[in-house]
């Protein structure tokens, strides 16, 4: 399971996702600030979410050499 770049990258990405979506990193977004008129907290969650999808797409679509 731990062999191969893809598996290792996925595990690392999973760990990153868990940490990003939980205490205490979640607190980083919880401020009364707006970016482009959108409150930071929901925006932050969506941005992290989109970034995880992009990273996952990258890991899955690049074949390991």
């Amino acid at each position: 399971m731990l062999k191969g770049m893809t598996s290792q990258r996925l595990l690392a990405l999973f760990a990153a996702g868990v940490v990003l979506f939980n205490f205490p990193l979640l607190m980083l977004w919880d401020h009364e600030v707006q970016v482009w008129g959108i409150p930071l907290f929901p925006l932050g969650l969506f941005v992290v979410w989109a970034a995880l999808i992009a990273a996952l797409a990258w890991v899955m679509e690049t074949r390991e050499g």
Binding site: L10, G17, V18, F21, P42, L52, L56
Partner: peptide, 21 residues
């Protein structure tokens, strides 16, 4: 509850990261 509808969709995101394994 505001943004509290989101965890139901963030969970699948995390699950899908490990789905390949």
């Amino acid at each position: 509850a505001g943004v509290w509808f989101l965890p139901i969709y963030l969970g699948p995101m995390l699950a899908m990261i490990l789905a390949w394994l």
